[in-house]
Design a protein around this nucleic acid. Sequence first.
RNA 1: GUGAUCGUAGCUCAGUUCGGUUAGAGCGCCUGGUUGUGGUCCAGGAGGUCGCGGGUUCGAAUCCCGUCGGUCACCCCA
Length: 390
Amino acid sequence: MIEQVKGTQNISGDNAIKYLYIQNLFNNKFSDYGYQYIQTPLLEYKELFDKSIGESSEIVTKQMYELIDKGGRELVLRPEGTSSIVRYHAEFNKDLTIKYSYFGSMFRYENPQKNRYREFNQAGLEIVGLIDTYSDFQIINDSFNFIKELIPGTKLNINTIGSISDREQFIKVLYEYFKANTDKLSQDSIDKLENNTLRILDSNNPDDSEVIKNAPNISEYINDNSKNNFDSLLEILSNSDIEYQIDNALVRGLDYYNDLTFEFITSENVVVGGGGRYDNLSEILSLGKFNGVGVAFGVERIMNSIPLPDNSSKYYLLGTDINKISKYSKELDKHNINYSKPPRLTKENAQFKDAKNQNVLYLINTDEDTIKNLITNQIEKFNIEVILEH
RNA sequence: GUGAUCGUAGCUCAGUUCGGUUAGAGCGCCUGGUUGUGGUCCAGGAGGUCGCGGGUUCGAAUCCCGUCGGUCACCCCA
């Protein structure tokens, strides 16, 4: 038996129903909100992510699927979506401000577990170009509406991490603080001290909690402009009755973020999505000078948090005579009525079972020219008018 | 990268402790019959490299080593 590649998935059965439900909701909602759907390649040059996500980040150092193609190019399977969209924007829409949406597979080489896979799907939004607080607000408002519709009770955590230079300064202070307190830190956190100081704040190791609680707070190192922007965003959110929780420890894993960062967290404490502002990404990539703000949801995490949507067909076409069945099909097709059928001509008994398993409401029997309501067991003579009344 | 646990029919699992005929059950599937208050019921049938590779043994689903995969946790993240 050839087994499937570790951490990949066959999205099938109930999961396929959930996947399509989420995808349909995403597409419908955000095309209405004016986001342009875009599909960028799954393969990108490795360089794109080295620069964007950050060369010392966990994703780049350990988690990328890398390959050399026959032309000797260093390629990777994309670990996230934002960098590709910024690359696209620079090439085709450089002077414009565009709202984008995307939906598709991402790849990260990690050990799989609940809510984490090596190939997984992200649904994301980006606004790229000339960005202001209204853009930030839109991303949060629109994506919050989406996730609340799927998972009621989801909460918004929000933070500002200041400009890149604020952060550099803060990291220096933080480094000195942790350096002075290494005796009270867990080994994991000590390992992060040199290259990933900021990440220590994310630690949920109880050994670290005391030190982290007393650590310098980033809010003291944030420049006035960033502070004002953040405050005015919070004000807009409040005026729009959008509830949020400020979380000063929320730093996120990608280097390109600045100022705004936020996460959506369910009542089960699953982070189903997150995002933030990336004003310097285009410059980091040497693609010009424009800004961006975006959000990405983990589709599998949503799938694991929602009940199974109703997906049953309404009608089932049963029969043993192909000519009669086809006559009925034609009639139903003409009126744009969808119906389910058995995959082949089995005996009636098997077709009844199939219909029952699919939870259909009405059974159209072409052998007897009847339509039966499977809930009430009421049988009527078949007539297209009867169906059109439903 | 680290650790725990699991892998036997399409599915859920028994059998592994303590090696021993032809590897079982339920559900599902197929065929025929039965049923017209149609989904029931009856009979028969198909279906397994016991994840894979090696080792020990007269003999391995069972013991040993390795490996691949699932699940879960750590790390990290969506």
